[in-house]
Write a protein that binds this DNA or RNA. Structure first.
Lengths: 149, 149
DNA sequence: TTGCTTGCAAAAGCTTTGCACCCAC
DNA sequence: GTGGGTGCAAAGCTTTTGCAAGCAA
């Protein structure tokens, strides 16, 4: 179970596994869509987890590579389970609906295979990428002109 | 000259071309690297342009499609001349050096040609994308392990 | 002239920090 | 028992808003 892997990783790095951290991690399991610290705090507040702890823990999890920060068109305060962690969300690029903000994960990375070569022509050794596609989701396509938010 | 095109576009849309807006636009000419509102305000403050005006004008220019917001790994408050505006930077995806933060523009979009189809499988009609590659630039590759910021 | 724009400063959001208490190890 | 971790609230930053005055059209 991914939760156990995360917990072990924290322990291995010398971090304590507290009730707050455990609760926060439990809320990440199976969550694929990007989320904000605020959303997470909303869910955890009833468990008595404080705002500051959410932010501190999110930072810790980033440092440990368990989470990555994702930057959506409407703000960059989103987090997502890191790619490459066994059992976690695999590497997924995203597509975001410009109408309703809904986010879906692509089932396939739409980068060309020669992307490293293109990067090389600009003088860089490629390490990774961050891709968001933008478009209109099916349900907004349906309502079409009826909404404009 | 691109400055004239921008000014005409604002006028055409019914916006006044004030001294503050003109100064701000002048500071965008030829600027390819992404910049922050704060940076721009720093440059414009001596001209008497206020903070609020910088933010308001940046938003206006986004609405008019003259600027786009770009999301770098270390923060998403960056702006850049929009792709597709004649004379401005063409559509360029970026590669950012993780060592020094240097940004280069790719000479070719590394997206696969069937990206629309991939988006379609997730239920979206594709409109555009935002791509940042990350890697190490040539000069940082040179100094190699000597720096770590 | 008209009303969109502006600059200032206060307000609003979001994130971090200080501090005393608590608990995982 | 110890030191990292926590919650609360205040502080810090960045961005937005209110308002009277200014200026482009």
């Amino acid at each position: 179970m991914i939760l156990q892997l995360w917990i072990e990783q924290l322990r291995k790095q010398g971090h304590k596994v507290t009730a707050a951290r455990r609760r926060l991690l439990e809320h990440l399991v199976g969550r694929e869509a990007p989320f904000t610290a605020e959303e997470l705090h909303g869910e955890l507040a009833m468990s008595g987890v404080g705002r500051a702890t959410v932010f501190r823990t999110l930072k810790l999890l980033q440092d440990e590579g368990i989470l990555v920060r994702v930057h959506l068109e409407h703000g960059c305060q989103h987090y997502q389970a890191a790619p490459g962690i066994p059992g976690a969300a695999h590497h997924h690029d995203r597509i975001v609906c410009r109408e309703c903000g809904d986010i879906a994960l692509l089932d396939e990375c739409p980068m060309r295979s020669d992307v490293s070569e293109i990067a090389g022509r600009s003088g860089f050794r490629l390490q990774g990428h961050h891709l968001d596609l933008y478009g209109i989701c099916r349900s907004c396509e349906g309502k079409d002109a009826s909404s404009d938010d």
